[in-house]
Amino acid sequence: MEKKQGYVTVTPGSLLATSEKRGEGVYILNKKTYSKFFGILKKSDYKLTVIPFTQSYKPGREDKIIGKIKEFNYPFFVIEIEAPNPAYLYLSGIPTYNTTQEQLMKIYKPGLWLYSEVSEVSDRVKLSMKSREAKVLKGGRIAYIYPSKVPRVVGKGGSMIKTIQNKTNCQVLIGQNGIIWINGDKTELVIRIIQKIDKEAHISGLTDRVTKLIDEELEQYGKN
C-alpha cells in the first residue's frame, strides 16, 4: 500500500480492514477484507471500493452503451460492446412503427455504431433501442477508454463533458462500456483531451487542468 495525497494505491492481496466490510473490488477471508485488484482504494464510513486501473466492461441493467453491429442472425443483431461476450439486439427491441424487416435491414447495417440501452442481463446481454436517447450514430469518430474511468470523463453531474462540449463545439456521447463517439470539427482535440483524462484520472483537480489544456489548444487552433 502506498499513500499519496488524496488517494491510496493497493496491490492484490493488500489488507484493507481487519473487519468484514462491504464494497466493490474487495473479498473477505478469515473475517478480514482484502483487495482483489491493482488499483485505487476509496474509503467511506461503511464501504470500501477498489477501482482497478484496467478492467473489462461488466454489463449492468439500464447502462447506456455504444456498440458496433457485427452481423444479423434472425431474430437478432449481434453487437460488439468491448465486453467478454457480445450483446444481442432483438428485433423486438427496435421501435418499428410501420417499418418492415427489410427496411430495418437497410438501416442497421454491419459496421454501424449504435447508442443503446442494456435491457436485460441474464443468460445473454440484450439491448434495446426503445429508450429516448438511443440512436444510430452516423459519421464522427470513436475513442476508447477503460470503463472504470468513464465517471471521470463525465465529471460531477456531467460537468467535465459539458465543458468539453461547450468549448470545442463537438457532440460527445459516452457509453458506460468505455467507447466514446465524437462528432464535430475538432474531433482530434477532443480525443487528445480524453487521452489525458484516461492517463490522469485518479489525480485530483482534473477539471481545472483539462480546462487549461483546452484553452491552450484552442489558442493554437485559432492561430493555425
Binding site: 492484490p12 492481496g13 482484502y34 485488484f37 491493482f38
Partner: peptide, 11 residues
C-alpha cells in the same frame, strides 16, 4: 495478471 485487472487473491 494484476496489470490486466484480473481479480486475484494475492500476488
Amino acid at each position: 495478471l494484476s496489470l490486466a485487472g484480473i481479480p486475484m487473491k494475492d500476488l
